[in-house]
Amino acid sequence: MKILIVDDFSTMRRIIKNLLRDLGFSNTHEADDGATALPMLKSGDFDFLVTDWNMPGMQGIDLLKAVRADAKLANLPVLMVTAESKRDQIVEAAQAGVNGYIVKPFTAQTLKEKIDKIWERIEAA
């Protein structure tokens, strides 16, 4: 399982990377905003995307929309991990086709639950 972690803060990327490793996902890659992430996603065979929302350059929500608009990436599971906590934002992310939404600060348990749930849904579909 190849996972891309997108966040502008390197410490947050490291935290998510370590939590994912603890959950058994050790093949993780990093990008610091949507503009860097999109070409990586297009050229690499990623199985999962974890992205922040508020980033310089390309925002996470725009990355999500770009992923859903790309024929090859349209079905990529996307988990948003962000400090953005307005109801309108969560609704917008849902409408844009996000698979999971975690608000920061979050726990290792929450991350595990959301990832498990995303896989359950994908396997059930």
């Binding site: 508020n54 906590s85 309108d88 917008e92 920061k104």
Partner: peptide
């Protein structure tokens, strides 16, 4: 816009 990023609440 209502959904522009605002950072942590």
């Amino acid at each position: 816009a209502d959904t522009a990023p605002e950072g942590p609440h």
